[in-house]
Design a protein around this nucleic acid. Structure first.
Length: 468
RNA sequence: GGUGUGGUACCCAAGUGGCUUAAGGGGAAAGUCUGCAAAACUUUUAUUCGACAGUUCGAAUCUGUCCCACACCUCCA
């Protein structure tokens, strides 16, 4: 039985889909006005694990992710400039070009991290009509009011507003530091449709029953999930930061308009803790996947790193921690490679042991996606002395459908091809010296080669050269 | 001011009442192997879970108090 932690109930629940055997799932994707940083990818990774675990459990999953290419203001509370327009202005490009560019980078990074694409990507600008219709629906039902800058949702009309975040509305007002729009009736009210500024031509704007403008950020997820998955679906996920505002508002809009429960299970991924390194995009300073690549890490090192912590807990990022993940991943890979050489067969006699390991793995992933424990089962499998290589590999390849470390496709690095002739010659002369028992010369050559960036190591049939 | 989360070995990180005399990885150390190394293999590395009280037959896990760190209530995945 798959158990998932539901933010709505603040507890781990048995997962029971609306339609047996099928799962409908929506996750809040990237806002493509800038690069995604490694913190963003922690969330996309968590969603990938969720998707994989659902599929591993045999569910037929319809997974939708949105691409926000319009309307996400600098503040979630609908203050400030549109992030897309602001960023475009800064770079002197059109917002459309910008969105396309950053979407492309997002896809590339996603693939490098072996994150599976969803079944459907929905771009906010492709669903303007649906968003307008939803605002109209709310308007018709009397949930809206108009101010000088847009159509707003009146949150005081819902008695359970804020149930997801368990908001203490009174407390919010007391501690609020935001510039409170005087025209807003309640601090928690938010824009459904924003009017284009009169003195300014926006690059992205559309006609609507309320005049030229653009949709508020929250409405896109409500409208697009409705369009693709219907009024009521199984799982909605995203980053933990979306609980108090974005997801709270999605629930308000969707339930007010549709008149039925919106989502059964809300799952939220915790943040990556960068220590002193602030990761907010607005500060302009953040670590991207490319930063890691430039520093000599493979994107998959980062994936392995993410697998070592539970998604609901803050994970401390540091280059030391990433180093240890990289080493761990390398060790795992070399063990797998060593096993691949073997020509063992699967034995009936070990069926029980293999069954036990598999059961244990499933138990871990189904316990609210406990990947650190699942990784521990993988290591147990690797080190199990009662199983032969073929048996271990069969299990590990199966487990890797969830972990996504690319272990089945793993091939021995063709490092030797890149070793310069000069180094090979030195290695050969070292072998000669060794044969003559001239160990002093042999050691000198090894040191010299090491200084040149290569490591010579002896093997049964001669030597190996590895780039350092 | 309000709200919330967390403090587990040198580092990362599971575990939330007995199966754990606390997973797993990294690191470190020792041994086997080796001319010596490297790799590989084997072994070791928290009687202890921020502190102090308490509940219990039994607690890292529950309760209370305190200390510390962080996050959110602006933006952020």
């Amino acid at each position: 039985m798959l158990k998932l932690y539901n933010t709505l109930s603040r507890s781990k629940e048995d997962f029971i889909p609306i339609i047996p055997g099928k799962v409908s799932m929506y996750s809040c994707g990237p806002t493509v006005y800038n690069y995604q940083h490694i913190g963003n990818f922690r969330t996309f990774f968590f969603e990938d694990i969720l998707y994989r675990v659902l599929r591993y459990n045999g569910y037929k999953v319809k997974y939708v992710m949105n691409i926000t290419d319009v309307g996400h203001l600098v503040s979630d509370q609908d203050e400030g400039e549109d992030k897309m327009e602001k960023s475009a202005k800064l770079l002197g490009r059109s917002v459309w070009e910008l969105a396309e560019f950053y979407t492309g980078v997002f896809y590339r990074d996603r693939d490098l991290l072996n994150i599976l694409p969803p079944d459907v990507y929905t771009k906010a600008t492709d669903y303007i009509k649906e968003q307008i219709e939803m605002v109209k629906c709310l308007d018709d039902k009397g949930f809206t009011y108009k101010t000088s800058d847009g159509i707003y949702f009146d949150t005081s009309l819902l008695k359970d507003y804020g149930k997801l975040a368990r908001l203490d509305i009174e407390g919010l007002q007391e501690g609020a530091r935001i510039e409170f729009s005087a025209e807003k009736k309640n601090i928690t009210d938010f824009a459904l449709w924003k009017f284009s500024p009169e003195n300014e031509k926006r690059q992205m704007e559309w006609e609507s029953p309320w005049g030229k403008g653009f949709p508020g950020w929250h409405i896109e997820c409500s409208a697009m999930s409705k369009a693709v998955l219907g009024n009521h679906f199984d799982i909605h996920c995203g980053g933990i930061d979306h609980v108090p505002i974005h997801h709270t508002n999605e629930i308000a809009q969707s339930e007010a308009c549709n008149g039925e429960k919106f989502v059964n299970y809300w799952l939220h991924g915790e943040f990556l803790d960068m220590g002193n390194e602030k990761m907010s995009k607005s500060s302009g300073k953040f670590v991207t996947l490319q930063t890691l690549i430039d520093r000599g890490y493979s994107p998959m090192d980062y994936r392995y790193f993410l697998l070592t912590a539970h998604y609901k807990k803050k994970q401390k990022f540091s280059f030391d921690a990433l180093d240890s993940a990289k080493n761990g991943y390398n060790n795992l890979k070399s063990r797998i490679l060593a096993m691949k050489i073997s020509s063992d067969g699967i034995r009936d006699a070990t069926a029980q042991q293999r069954e036990d390991l598999k059961k244990s793995f499933i138990e871990k992933i189904n316990d609210d996606l406990n990947m650190p424990e699942a990784m521990s089962v993988i290591w147990e499998t690797v080190k199990d002395s009662s199983l032969n290589s073929a048996e271990k590999l069969e299990l590990i390849y199966d487990f890797d459908k969830v972990t996504g470390l690319g272990l089945e496709k793993l091939e021995k690095d063709s490092d030797n091809a890149e070793v310069p002739d000069e180094i090979i010659k030195l290695a050969e002369s070292r072998a000669e010296a060794k044969a003559k028992k001239d160990f002093k010369t042999a050691d000198e050559i090894r040191v010299k080669v090491r200084e040149m960036g290569y490591e010579i190591s002896d093997s049964k049939d001669g030597f190996d050269i590895k780039k350092l």
